[in-house]
Design a protein around this nucleic acid. Structure first.
Lengths: 231, 231
DNA sequence: TAGATTGTTAATCGATTAACAATC
DNA sequence: TAGATTGTTAATCGATTAACAATC
């Protein structure tokens, strides 16, 4: 097949690269705070503990942000990565569940700096409904449909108990919310076109446990296990 | 070089595989609840959305848990993966910081089922010190050194404000705590032999934002950006 | 036994690292 | 200009997938 013109077939950036972007963003933010104006991939690589090659490859997925013989201008690169990650977006975000986790999320002022504006919190507890966290009103979960039909909502942070998570996820997805941030230890399956990002706390903790055991060989506190496979 | 005996050079299991183990564990737990006795890699693969080949490869890093022509016995495999992950361990765990996040963690009863026993919580707030969460006493952070010298502590969950995280991490690591679960958006660098597992919430959220933008092309709410690179 | 499905080797794919020409 | 460092291509490494002989 002949391609008459150079097609703009921008190859999709791999998830591995995307996941590293917030980390670059943090390091550049730190460099800015330290008043460091420029940085080479070599210097950044030794700070971050990854190869300079990887840094240059990653950045070049999005554009040539550096200058030969000079390196990268910290502020410029910080802003560029911010643009790629969309930190100057204003994702309209709601939190569902005003328990400890929901309140912790509501109090994270950093999310707003990263482009996520929390516009409402929902809960079923009448003691909580009507109160505020950082000027964000906690509303009755029953008013969710009303609220979303009147306020465009991009993202819902799901911080509700385990059993309620699939139900609530279904509800918000049905209402057109496109992004779900799920804190329950389950994989949501929804018949809607949504992006789901999981924070599987217990998975993370179990990986820590595995690594600890691997490195320090903790002794088990249980009785000896039967390793035969005879079913 | 000649190896007189077959050396037990068990190849280290890759992190990619280890990270999938908790997910297998969850799916097997669900199957158990559904009273499903046996499962083939094919059937499990379609439930989990990964290839059957990957499942068999992953499991065979640790042993042959299946049976040709039969598949895997759900309960047996569940227990085996539990053993690999150390769910019958009793990691002595403390939480530092009894704010919303610390309290959320303290209330997660599932951690104990996964082998993590929370034995104490620490905070600086005099209003919290002396109170309890699920029978776990909140102690004054000043008594941390005393406590750890009298109670063996494997893991510390760090849920303290950003600025205090490196200080607290240094303190617990110095006291011999081997595993740190870090909730602050930073990479801890410590001069001790510790395993650090991070829960970088804002990183996760930014990846969600990136994916949303990629898929639905959200319009930016900020003014047009200058993409020239002229520093 | 015949059928099913694993365990495992080989092939493929993708991600990381190395190398170096381009260029500031 | 000379030196430094990027952008980018090529080489390597590792992880995923495919294939199939072993075997329950």
């Amino acid at each position: 097949m002949y391609w008459g013109v150079k097609m703009n077939l921008k190859k999709k950036v791999s998830l591995a690269v995307v996941k590293r972007l917030p980390r670059y963003y943090r390091y550049l933010s730190d460099l800015l705070k330290m008043d460091i104006k420029r940085i080479s991939s070599q210097e950044l690589s030794s700070r971050m503990g990854i190869t300079a090659s990887q840094i240059r490859q990653d950045l070049n997925c999005f554009g040539g942000f550096g200058q030969q013989g000079y390196g990268y201008n910290v502020e410029y690169l910080f802003n560029e990565i911010g643009n790629i990650l969309g930190t100057n977006n204003k994702y309209q975000t709601i939190i569902i569940g005003a328990g400890n986790m929901g309140q912790a999320l509501a109090n994270y002022t950093n999310f707003e700096k990263r482009g996520f504006k929390i516009i409402s919190i929902f809960d079923v507890d009448p003691k909580l409904v009507g109160t505020e966290i950082r000027d964000i009103e906690i509303r009755d979960l029953e008013t969710l449909e009303d609220f979303i039909s009147q306020n465009y909502v991009d993202i819902a942070m799901l911080a509700v108990p385990y059993e309620q998570t699939p139900v609530v996820a279904e509800r918000v997805a049905k209402l057109g919310v496109r992004g779900l941030w799920n804190f329950s230890p389950m994989d949501l399956k929804l018949p809607y076109d949504v992006i789901i990002e999981n924070v599987h706390l217990s998975d993370s903790l179990m990986v820590l446990g595995y690594k600890l055991n691997e490195k320090f060989d903790f002794t088990r506190n249980d009785s000896e296990k039967n390793n035969d496979c005879d079913f």
